[in-house]
Simulated assay, not measured.
Amino acid sequence: MTTTLDCVKPGSRARIINILHQGGWVYRMYQLGVFPGVEVEIVYNDGRGPIVLRVGDSEIVVGRGLARRIIVESSGGS
């Protein structure tokens, strides 16, 4: 089942399927290790404000607007 990153609940894992749009922010996400095929864990998502992701050993904060442009496939809880 695919959804956007902003809809994934904390403690869940998701695989990045696609990043919509183009621009410098997409390049920056790639630099941070967030690109199609990568599995991320949602550390914090309260339904408002930024989302905290765990990618490998790093935690990354993503604004909700950007998270709506990242298509993921949910892979369950941790």
Rank of each mutant, 00 (worst) to 15 (best):
E41Q: 15
L53C: 10
T4P: 00
V61I: 15
G65H: 12
P36W: 12
S78P: 15
G37L: 04
R48M: 09
V34N: 05
L66C: 02
I16P: 11
P50R: 01
S78D: 04
R28P: 00
E73L: 02
E39V: 15
E73V: 02
G76K: 02
I70P: 04
S78R: 15
I51Y: 14
I19W: 10
S75I: 07
P10E: 10
D46V: 12
I17C: 00
V38W: 06
V26C: 09
Q31G: 13
V61E: 14
I51D: 14
I70D: 11
T4Q: 01
D6Q: 05
G37Y: 07
N45A: 05
V8P: 07
W25L: 07
A14T: 05
P10M: 04
G65M: 03
G47T: 11
A14F: 03
D57I: 08
L66S: 07
V8A: 11
A67S: 12
K9I: 04
Y44V: 05
E39Y: 12
N18S: 15
I71N: 02
N18E: 15
F35S: 11
G56W: 02
G24W: 02
Y44N: 02
R15Y: 03
R69V: 01
A14E: 08
C7V: 03
G23K: 14
Q31P: 00
M29H: 04
I51R: 13
N45V: 00
V55I: 15
N45Y: 06
V55W: 12
Y27E: 15
Q31A: 13
V8R: 03
Q22W: 07
G47Q: 07
P10Q: 09
L53Q: 03
P36V: 06
L66V: 12
R48Y: 12
Q22C: 09
V72Q: 03
Q31H: 06
I71R: 01
G47L: 13
W25K: 00
Y30G: 05
V38M: 15
G33R: 06
S78K: 13
V8W: 08
S12D: 04
A14K: 03
I70N: 14
G23H: 11
E39P: 08
E73Y: 02
P36G: 11
V34R: 09
